[in-house]
Amino acid sequence: MANLLWLQGGACSGNTMSFLNAEEPSACDLVTDFGINVLWQPSLGLELGDNVKSILEKCISGEIQLDIFVFEGTVINAPDGTGEWNRFCGEPMKNWVKKLCDAAQYVVAIGDCATWGGIPATAPNPSDSEGLQFLKRAKGGALGENFVSKSGLPVINIPGCPAHPDWVTQILVAVASGRGGDLTLDEFQRPKTFFSSFTQTGCTRNMHFAYKVSTTAFGQRKGCLFYDLGCRGPMTHSPCNRILWNRQSSKTRAGMPCLGCTEPEFPFFDLAPGTVFKTQTVMGVPKDLPTGVDKKGYMKLTAAAKNASPAWAEEDIFVV
């Protein structure tokens, strides 16, 4: 049995909604098959008011062993560092977060807001939001750079807007079943098992990427979304095209450019007008090139690919 407590800070509840759609394993499987005892969760918990506060206090005192503390949403510090804009159970949420993280065996940050601030922390960041151990790319966050939970691991970051439900449940199963020590994390503390490959890995439009044929308008099934519509699939670490959404599809498969939501900079370019759904270029060359490719190589690759491109690459081959 592993006790799990889930709280929300500056959040839209999107990650909770995502979590409830998990399939492999499902949220119910966590309880029935993997021995996770959900002490409280904002959308599932039955307790209200003082009864919730009592659970939190017992977790902090050690009366209830807190095995997994899950946090969704940003840690809000406004106004003036007090955190009073986000009060919960009688005090600023940021205080509960600090005490619960110190008490927990494992701390798991779910979604961009909890990992590195996400949309709320976008400039000018009026709520003075930050993630548990990062603010965008900068290490530190609400808990500080050197924080480790009782297990010895730093915060396990599962980013995304929202995070894919199965990334969440699979990591929870790993830590609940005593395999937390097997997790390897990348430089942003994301589990490598999910975040070493790219969103582009497994994308059905890869042939069009290879032959440099662009999707030039929404709704087209031919072409790659990287060249014109701002897709960040080649630069974004996620398994969105390996572990499909709703077991069916992904953004890029459905014709929606990847927005890079598992990377610390999301939302990119601070959502300035003209930067969403448009590939940013400098003198006609994409500002952000596929990871590991330099400008010279990119231009050579394009010339070669265009020369080698077959006629079918210009057609809609997804005939129903």
Partner: peptide
Amino acid sequence: QECMYFLVHKRWCDL
């Protein structure tokens, strides 16, 4: 020829 809007077989600007 190298522009991403150019369809090399159709000889067409797809913008």
